[in-house]
Structures are given as structure tokens and as C-alpha cells.
Design a protein around this nucleic acid. Structure first.
Lengths: 245, 245
DNA sequence: GATTTTCATTTGTCAGACATTTAAATGTCT
DNA sequence: AGACATTTAAATGTCTGACAAATGAAAATC
């Protein structure tokens, strides 16, 4: 592990990269302890603050964790699905909010991904998944539910659908996409009629999964996509109509 | 923006979180300059190194960029698809390598996602995408190609398929998944016969896209999934047969 | 032997300083 | 006045040294 002090990049960035490469290449295995900050500083021939900046970069990506005290230090972190999920959501959320991705584009991606889960979920969903979905449908039909709570329940419903596929990689990828869209969905105001429509489609999805009929689920998802896109367009039209610019 | 010095979390982590929240909430907009490190140190009532550690955390997530010099400083970064893509790949790669995700699971997720792209890609693929895919197929049939080069071309082929869908969100999500699998794919040795089989399926995918027939593409992808899973099982069987453990 | 105390190690934080980069301000010449 | 060179100030990047706080292990004590 060597770094080039003449490179234009920051030393801390170079050091972080060197350590990251070591982790990816398997030179550093999970739960292995890195040398102490003082030792790393000596190895890379830099000061301790520089090493610390590098370690913080890695910590921000959940690649390492640090522990204070005698037997403390920096340890290679076992990246959990939860950690990755968190990162994915913040990244995807920012991406959607800053790149002005159109609602339609995000919507299309989301439902395309969900439809990809449908056959697997129809095959493997447990009774638990189904129960969760039914419970969320019931919550969604409660009167007096705020739009935000409705959205949150919507996310939980779709998350159960995705988890039903029994593939953690899919769950991680997809749940991230679904949750990242929530801020955009929250901007929609759901009328009683639109809620009824959505709940009805949710029920059809749950029915399809119960019958293990992927076709039904996909059809309902396609309808739901079209309806969601419509709601998005309505909101856009309203807000552009209300405010002058 | 306030932090609590009595909290168990590191000050730099708290500061990073405070700034991140500001970005997500829109208090800090893209390309806006943050206060200088010295000013931030005063605002949060901490030292400059602590502020710097916080900024490095944010830089590691591509949330900010820093510039040296007179008009320099830390600026809120417009998160690009490329940046997000990079992050996604490293995260997903580590996730696959450290969590011992089975080849089958990763494979299933990958092809489920690709099938989700098929209808959109059939509808929207440009002549360019098709040309890229044909070119990669041609490269794959060159004799003397190393396994690694074959894999790289395979990734390029599938990336063109995904990009053909014309949905940047899908491209970002999916290309990440495909590329993250490359290390696992690289562990497979491709015989001449298996290459022929794969190339044939690639050709069928390209044909399907050319004819804008999503069904053909999906069918070929399903076959390719089955075949890839088979190759993965073979490799597992061989390696477990060769080495004792 | 069990409990308490001490201690060494390590990360977390601070203060101050200097180096380097960079753009803007200033000065100078044509 | 305009073009070019120089200076300057502001900002990040880095270093040194120090102290605080946490923590596990060894030593001391009961």
C-alpha cells in the first residue's frame, strides 16, 4: 500500500482509496483490525489528522467502524443489507431531488422493477407477507388518514410485495427505489376517490399473490403505474396553474 | 443547525449529519458554497480538524466537493448519475462479496431486473444501442479472447440493453447490479461451447430488440439466466471438488 | 478467588502554525 | 485604455503537539 505525494488528489483521498482497495481485494477481511491511526500515519508517512480524514471517508461509506479504548481501533465492517439500503435511499433520494428526474421517469422505473418481482413474489411469498399487505390495505382504508401516512403505508405495502420475492438483492435494490420515490409521492394530494382506486388495485395485487398468479399481479401493477402517473400529471398541472411561473 | 456535544456520537458525525440534513431539506441548494471551515468551526463551536472530518465524510458520499484557493471552499455537489453509479457499484460489489450472496440469488436478481427493462428497451432502443450490442457480440466471438475480456464485453452488452430502455433511473439501478456481479462472473471459466451458447442468446436478444419484440427478448433472457446459473453451479462443483474444503 | 485500582493504548478533540493553491486586486507598460 | 505581470488575500491541505475520554488488561488489594 503506497501513495504518491505528488498526485493532485488529496492525501486523505489517496489513503482512503488504498485502504478501500485493500478491503475490496480481500487483503483486509471482515472484522479485521486496521493498524492504529499512529501506525497508519507512519506507514503512509503522513500526519495523524490526515489519516483520520481518510478513515472518516471510509466510515461514511460504512466500510469501517471505529471503537475507542484500549482494544479499540478501526475495524473492517461487514456491510449489512440495512447499511447498504440506507445509503441507497439517501443517494437515490438526492438523485431524484437534484437531477429533476421527472415523476413519470421515476414512476416508470419503479413499476418496471416491481413487475420484475411479481413472478418471484407470486411463487415464494409467505403467509406473513400476505398478512402484512392485507394489514396495510386495511390501514389505507381508514378514514382520517393523512396523505403522508397513506404514502408511508403504500411504501410498506410495496415493500412487502418486494420482500415476498425472497431475494435479498432484489429487496435491497428495489426497496431503495420505492422509498426514494416517497418524497415525490408525498407531494401528491390523495382524494378519497383516488385512495379507493389505489386500495382496489392493492387488493387485486394481494389477491394475485394469494392465488400465486403473477399475471394478475403484473396487470394490477401496470394499472397502478398508469394511475400513479396520472396523479402525478394532475399535481403538476395544478401547481403550474396555481402559481404564475 | 445545532449539535449536541453530550451525544455519544462523534462530533464530526453529528456535524456531517446536520449539513446533510440541510442539503436534503433544501436549505443548501446545488452549487451553493458552504461557510469556510473556520466559520463552520465557529458556528458549531468545534475545532477546524473536526469540521474537516465532517466535510470529508460528506465528500466521500459525493454530497459536496471542495476547491482550494481564494474563491474556493466546499460546495454542494449536484449528484450525477455517474457518481451515484460509482457508489452503487462499490457498495453492491462489497455487499455481494462480503455477505456471501449465492451466485444463484445474484443471478436471479440480475435477470429479473433485466427482464423488467426488456419491454421498454424494445420500445425505445435506438439504432446506436443495437449497433453497440452487435459490436459486442462480434467481439465476443473473436478467438483468443480472455475470460475477463469476454466478461467485460458481456457487461457492455447488457449495459446497452439496459440503456436502451431510455430511463436513467433504471440504467443507474440496473447497470449497478450488472456490474457488481462481474467479479462473480469472472470466476467462471468459459469454454468455447459455452461462449457459443451465450453469444447465440445474445444474438437472439439483439434480434428481439431489432424486431421490437419484448417477448423474444424476455424468453432469451430467461434462457440466459438458466444457462448462467448452470455455469455458476458447475464452477461451484468443480472448485469444491478440487480443493478439499 | 473476587473485587478494585491502576495503567497503557487508542480514538476523539483542540490549538496553532505553515504550505499551497487560486482568484481577484493592484501595478506597470505599451 | 488595454494587456500583461505582480502582489495579495482567502481558502483548503497538512503538520506538530497536546490533552481528554473511553476501555480493556494487568496489578494490587481485600
Amino acid at each position: 500500500m503506497k501513495i504518491d505525494p505528488t498526485k493532485p488528489a488529496d492525501l486523505s483521498a489517496q489513503i482512503a482509496e488504498a485502504i478501500r482497495d485493500g478491503i475490496v481485494a480481500g487483503d483486509l477481511i471482515v472484522d479485521e483490525r486496521l493498524p492504529s491511526e499512529a501506525e497508519l500515519a507512519e506507514q503512509f508517512d503522513v500526519s495523524r489528522p490526515t489519516v483520520r480524514e481518510a478513515l472518516k471517508r471510509l466510515a461514511a461509506q460504512s466500510l469501517i467502524r471505529t471503537q475507542r479504548g484500549a482494544a479499540g481501533g478501526a475495524f473492517v465492517n461487514r456491510l449489512s443489507f440495512e447499511d447498504a439500503h440506507e445509503q441507497q435511499i439517501t443517494t437515490a433520494t438526492l438523485l431524484l431531488s437534484m437531477n429533476a428526474v421527472s415523476f413519470e421517469t421515476a414512476c416508470e422505473a419503479r413499476f418496471a422493477l416491481e413487475r420484475a418481482c411479481a413472478p418471484l413474489s407470486a411463487l415464494r411469498r409467505s403467509a406473513d407477507h400476505l398478512a402484512t399487505m392485507r394489514a396495510e390495505i386495511h390501514r389505507q382504508s381508514q378514514p382520517g388518514l393523512t396523505d403522508e401516512a397513506f404514502c408511508a403505508s403504500d411504501v410498506a405495502f410495496h415493500r412487502a410485495l418486494v420482500d415476498g420475492a425472497g431475494n435479498p438483492v432484489l429487496s435491497y435494490q428495489l426497496a431503495g427505489a420505492v422509498e426514494a420515490m416517497q418524497p415525490l409521492m408525498n407531494m401528491i394530494t390523495f382524494t378519497a376517490r383516488s385512495r379507493d382506486r389505489i386500495i382496489g388495485l392493492h387488493a387485486r395485487i394481494a389477491d394475485g399473490l394469494e392465488a400465486r398468479d403473477a399475471g394478475l399481479v403484473e396487470a394490477a401493477l401496470t394499472e397502478l403505474e398508469a394511475y400513479t402517473a396520472l396523479l402525478g400529471r394532475d399535481r403538476a398541472a395544478q401547481s403550474s396553474g396555481r402559481v404564475a411561473r
